[in-house]
Design a protein around this nucleic acid. Structure first.
Length: 428
DNA sequence: TCTGGGGTCCTAGGACCC
DNA sequence: TCTGGGGTCCTAGGACCC
């Protein structure tokens, strides 16, 4: 049976670990910036019941937050990734789950060689209990014969308290489960498909399954057919660990719009620095660089302009200076004055291992390549030790405050930084 | 005032080939 | 009236995911 583990309100649950006084209270995690912008990314159950939703801009729900004394945390991905890794380790140590794979920061898939639903339920209850007691994050579990069905089971475990957070969906119960499942709850059915399905009178997952394969193929393409097969218990989604990321992206929405090319150049340089660092951390190089800029789509009163440009590098690279240079050339090509830009970003793609770089036949000296590599390695190790951007390219700028587009609050990393470790006070 | 960030996969259509 | 036929490769954009 394929099993699925899903962390409940993951980001919010992670924050509550270190603030046990907030247990049972409304908690939200948002990606805030210094102007109080940002949107809600995750919410505790209690925050949902008072009407807050994922995606709400903070400024729109300010009243609800203040009235109900909601705790708002800035998102701290480093912390959440570390906690996710610890959950993974708990499961691995149990030694009952095979092919255990992290699907996302808060979801896992695996296989358990146990067909008896009762025995499987006991195994998963124990696993859930061990995660909750060992790490402090509540989880929901589902099990069935395909990935999509395992997620259906998890959906039931979350929506019906009688399951105690663990739902097993054996073959004979699949139809009954799909008959009661709104089709838009199925993994792989998004907003656009929901619209089409409504039009065809398909409202439950079972309605979807009962259509002909040719119909599904015609209107929902090959991906729809996969979901259709998965819902019938035939696993056909590939969830192997990707050997390597295929693209790396870095982008930010600016707190304030800007039409200044110099400012955009500074932002872009920093995006490239972050993206290339990630590229080097996974021992990769990229061949293709794409930059884009967009205006504020929420401001219909202002002229809109979005554009992007790409370039292929002669030699695949992960060197910050070279890629900044490339990105700034591209930015110069798509930049138009007279627009207020709200967001910009970079995408590195065509990624390969740095062990198989095809050098440029016509380059002056291949030694240069080795030198650049050592330079980057030295810069990375200094920045790891003394803090992000202690060593930087001049075009990244020097004003610390302006570099921080994302979040102005210093984040507490209780699980990875000894200085941030939680303090327990005695009550005299 | 303030409206996220980072991914994957698929398709249609254009450019090009013989 | 009828205006070839069969490919490949690339890219932009859509849809979906968390």
């Amino acid at each position: 049976m394929i099993i699925h583990i899903d962390c409940n309100s993951f980001y919010a649950s992670c924050e509550i670990i270190f603030r046990p006084d907030l247990q049972g209270k409304p908690v939200v995690v948002a990606n805030c910036n210094e102007a109080g912008g940002g949107i809600i990314l995750a919410l505790s159950k209690e925050a949902k019941t008072i009407g807050l939703k994922r995606g709400n801009p903070i400024f729109q729900v300010k009243e609800i937050i203040e009235k109900n004394n909601v705790a708002v945390f800035p998102a701290n991905l480093v912390k959440y990734c570390d906690i996710s890794r610890r959950i993974m380790q708990v499961v691995i140590d149990e030694n009952i789950v095979h092919n255990f794979i992290q699907y996302s920061v808060d979801e896992f898939f695996g296989t358990i060689l146990e067909d008896d639903p009762d025995k499987l339920k006991r195994l998963l209850l124990k696993l859930k209990d061990d995660i909750e007691r060992g790490i402090g994050v509540p989880v929901s579990c589902g099990a069935s014969t395909s990935y999509t069905l395992a997620k259906v089971a998890t959906w039931y475990s979350k929506h019906y308290p009688a399951f105690n957070g663990v739902c097993i969906l054996p073959k004979e119960k699949i139809t009954a489960a799909l008959e009661r499942l709104p089709v838009e709850e199925v993994w792989g059915i998004g907003r656009a498909s929901k619209h089409k399905l409504d039009h065809f009178g398909i409202h439950t997952a079972d309605d979807f399954v009962n259509k002909q394969e040719s119909f599904i193929k015609r209107f929902f393409s090959i991906t729809g057919v996969r979901t259709w097969k998965e819902l019938q218990g035939e696993p056909c989604i590939n969830i192997d660990d990707p050997p390597q990321q295929r693209s790396i992206m870095h982008s930010r929405t600016f707190t304030y719009m800007t039409d200044n090319i110099e400012v955009l150049n500074t932002y872009m340089s920093n995006f490239v620095a972050a993206a290339t660092r990630k590229l080097r951390d996974q021992h990769s190089v990229c061949r293709s660089v794409t930059v884009y800029i967009v205006t504020n789509r929420h401001r219909e009163d202002l002229p809109q302009y979005n554009n992007s440009a790409s370039m292929q590098l002669t030699t695949a690279s992960s060197e910050t200076p070279l890629i900044i240079k490339t990105a700034l050339v591209l930015l110069g090509k798509i930049y138009r004055s007279g627009y207020n830009y709200k967001k910009a970003g970079i995408i590195l793609s065509d990624i390969a291992s740095d062990r198989s770089v095809q050098l440029d036949l016509f380059a002056d000296s291949h030694n240069d390549h080795g030198r650049q590599r050592r330079l980057m390695a030295a810069a990375d190790s200094i920045n790891t030790r003394y803090g992000m951007n202690k060593i930087r390219i001049a075009s990244q700028g020097f004003e610390e405050s302006k570099l921080n587009l994302n979040c102005f609050q210093p984040l507490k990393n209780q699980t990875t930084n000894i200085d941030d470790i939680i303090q327990v006070k005695s009550n005299k």
